[in-house]
Design a protein around this nucleic acid. Structure first.
Lengths: 212, 212
DNA sequence: CCAATTGTTTGTCGATCGACAAAGAATAGG
DNA sequence: CCTATTCTTTGTCGATCGACAAACAATTGG
């Protein structure tokens, strides 16, 4: 394959774009913003990524394979549902409040409103969030099948509950609620799962209040 | 007071603007959109409301005095915290999923991202959401003072928990999760409060699954 | 009836939006 | 070295952004 070699690192540029979208959302990030953030002319961005929308989709994919993938990773680990769900939220809080990148979740923050042109982007983001809800429900359903949860447990309701809470945590984090407060919030949040555990072990585990 | 009388109803125009902002957010709603929605020329909008931002702030005030004020109203009613909190959420779900206006909460949806110009609008919306969190904490603190909640209850954590859940419900509603699913979610959601109730009454109340 | 006041109409302003076209520069294969 | 291919540079396109200015119309107080 011939041709002049690219002078900038495509992966680095993509990560910068991801951070820009994370901070300002899809529509809130203009091409001029991206030119500033990536440090390259707009024509080079189009040559490398196709369009603003294509760049955004790649940025979301990068986010979900990195910082945004905490939920998937936590749920695929071995262990009880109790540990898994609590891990999802402690990781969420850590990710959503870290200072070296924007607060909250890219997929939650970037959506919100929908202008005429970007309706499909909004819908695409919504489907991502719905997928995350489904993943949580699947986790709980598997736990129920294993006998970890009471047979009468409504895993769909419980999953919807934790998905809603997760999305709400993103909003709270972006509004400046700190990690300590969000972590304290986990104590009441886990009572819902504890009530559904098959083991009658009272207060099987309490939300970690460690480190710091 | 002399002068030519206004030919359009200012209140009706404001409501139409509120619905437009609710559907598309602040930045997502252009002046052209408002011209279409209100049915009057842009110069008349500026004459009547001052600017797009001033119109938006009036629209939010209208929202909070109407559909968006359910939480304040529910919390100011007489009754137990249990009833009040459950009422906040049943009203939220009803409001957020009604078909005669956009889904979700205007204050949650309109924010999300923040462009350069509208940073102050974003911050203003964030302060509104933080205020809502505080209101819930205040409600719980008063209930604790009345002896409704166990003395050791962390009302801040519990309030943060329900505020996060409330904001998450707005996201879920906007993503198309229906009222039935959201209402089912209330059952696990209320276990957190039940665990903090001073009365050892087991399952003092279950989430209403009535009407429809 | 007149002047002051206020709403309405029409047109447009500069800035910014996302998106390329065209031309020059750098590489690989032949 | 030459050609095909790819990237970079520069400039700009039409559309849309929020926001008025100026001229005209309608009303009230004097």
């Amino acid at each position: 394959m011939a041709g002049r070699p690219r002078e900038f690192d495509r992966d680095q540029a993509l990560e910068k774009a991801m951070l820009a979208f994370w901070a300002r959302g899809y529509e809130g990030t203009s091409m001029a913003n991206l030119v500033d953030a990536l440090g390259i002319a707009s024509a080079r961005i189009y040559a490398a990524f196709g369009s603003k929308e294509a760049l955004f989709r790649e940025a979301v994919a990068l986010y979900e394979s990195g910082q945004g993938g905490f939920a998937e990773r936590a749920m695929q680990q071995e262990g009880t549902v109790r540990v898994a769900i609590e891990r999802v939220f402690t990781d969420a809080i850590e990710t959503y409040t870290q200072a070296d990148h924007p607060q909250g979740c890219l997929v939650v923050s970037a959506a919100a409103s929908g202008a005429l042109e970007s309706d499909q982007v909004i819908a695409w983001l919504a489907s991502h969030r719905r997928q995350r809800t489904q993943s949580i429900i699947d986790l709980l359903a598997a736990a129920k099948q294993r006998g970890e949860l009471k047979p009468e447990t409504d895993v769909a309701a419980l999953g919807d509950f934790y998905a809603a809470l997760l999305h709400g945590v993103s909003v709270q984090a972006r509004d400046g609620i700190g990690a300590e407060r969000l972590r304290a919030m986990l104590v009441p949040a886990m009572t819902a799962l504890d009530a559904a555990l098959a083991t009658s072990d009272p207060a099987a585990g309490s939300a970690s209040t460690s480190k710091e």
